[in-house]
Structures are given as structure tokens and as C-alpha cells.
Amino acid sequence: MKWYEAISKIDRRIIYSILTICIILPFFTRFKMRQNIMPQTKQLFDFIESIPSNDKAVYISFDYDPQTMPECHPMAIALLKHCFARNIPVIGGSFNVQAPGLAVDAIATVTDEINRNALSRDDSLIYGEDYVYLGWKSGFIAAMIDMGESISGVFPRDYFRSSVDSFPLLQKVDNYKNIAIVIILSASDYPEYWILYPQSRYGVKIGAGLTAVMAPKYYPFIQTGQLSGMMSGMKGAAEYENLILTHGYAKKLGKAETGMNSQSMVHILIIVFIILGNIGYFFARKNEKSQQ
């Protein structure tokens, strides 16, 4: 076998082995590269910064599942940290049936950390007053439209089966008028439906945290201003983690930063393999032509 044939026919087991090393290695080494913040991530961060404390709430629609957790879960944690650090009430909900478990985990991770370090009531977070998780609801298009009339009408009980009327936060916020922005964390088309229905009817501001595969579809919505900001993929999550760290809302970086190192190494590896494959292809073609 000639050298150019060899580099274009590398056994897939070799590729898989090198890939595994590239994914695992960054978790055991400590290196940090400066993140160049994308404008749409900064836009979302700035929007949250512009919301006055203890005024309007942020509604987070947790619509991701375990499959896309590595990209969307760090986004949820960074976003919750930012909102709570700025005393912005958070209401959570889900239209993806697999999402509630992850939403509960993200909220519990952040609230437990804040409450552990709290010195007074002002520093701590109370369920029902500072945050609420409403759980899952079927018929998502009808539900998101109807929430414009009454959130408690669509979600009469929260995820833990408590009546939402008993929560001071839901007494203050019963429709989109008291919601500063709805942020959808998803790996599918939920943000598009939020833009098509509740935004066009009630004018609610929409933000998104999407997987890297989904993000390119939403660039037109950023340009038109229908999306008030967007985190795209693990990079978006790492950027948001960096933003809240540099602004003093978090003490350390989250999991997306480490994930980005793995992802970068895998991307470099894929590029190297594609180049090798193409070199082999060109030399093989050249050889074929010369033989003809």
C-alpha cells in the first residue's frame, strides 16, 4: 500500500482510540484559553443585566434532555446564577417531557450553593418567593399562547403538586406582562414556536440557549431582533460562564469551560483527519491520471 493510500484509509479503531484520548485528556489537565465572546451571547448577558432587581421575572423554559445535557445544562446553571445574583425572580417550566429531572437538578444545584453560603434572608433563596418550577405541560403551542392570559391557568400546580396560587411570586407574575424575558434552553425548535405565537401576540422578549447544531437556524431571528440574545452550543455556555465570572456573579467557571477544551481538541483532530484524507485523495487521483 502506498503512503497516500495508507493515510486515506486509516482504520476506524485507530480514529476512535485517538478521539477517546482527545476527549478524556483535557479533564485531567488544567489549561485555560481565553474565550472570544460572541455578540449574541453578550447580547443575552446584557439583557439580563438591564433587568431591574426584584422587578420583572425571567421565565426559563427547560426543554433539553439527557442527550443534549452537556451543552444545555451548563447554560441553565450559568443563567440561574446570573439571575439569582442580580435578585431577579425565576420561573421555570418545560414542554419537553424528558426535561423536568434536569431542570430540578439545575435549580437545586444553584439554589443549594447560594443558600449554603447565605448569611441572612436577603442572601438566601426561598421557593415560591424567589423561584418556582412549574413542571411539564402537554400541548405546548396552546400552553405557551394561553400563558399570555394566565400562567396559573395553564399550570394550576407546580412540579411538586403545590397550588401555584399559594406562591407570592405567581401572585405577582401571572402573565407575560411581568416577565422580562423568556429564555428557552433547547435542542429543538421550541424557540421558533415561542417567537411565532407568544411573541407575535403578546410581544414578550425571547432569548435562547441552543445546541451548536440548532444555532445557525436562529441567526435570522437575532438580526431582526426577535431573539434578544442567544447562547450557541457548549461555546455559548462557556462564554456565559466567563461573563458571569468576570462580572463577579460566580466564583469559578463551570463545566462548559472544561468541555470546550475537549471539544476544541476533537475539532482539531477531525480537521487533521479530513486534511489527511484529502491529501491521500489528491495524490491517488494524480496517480490515476498519470497512469492513464
Binding site: K137, S138, G139, I141, A142, A143, I145, D146, G153, V154
Partner: peptide, 9 residues
């Protein structure tokens, strides 16, 4: 819309 939510369930 509420009918639709029930039907979807």
C-alpha cells in the same frame, strides 16, 4: 387552548 392541552395529554 385548554381543550387542546387536555387533548394533547
Amino acid at each position: 387552548n385548554k381543550w387542546y392541552i387536555v387533548l394533547a395529554a
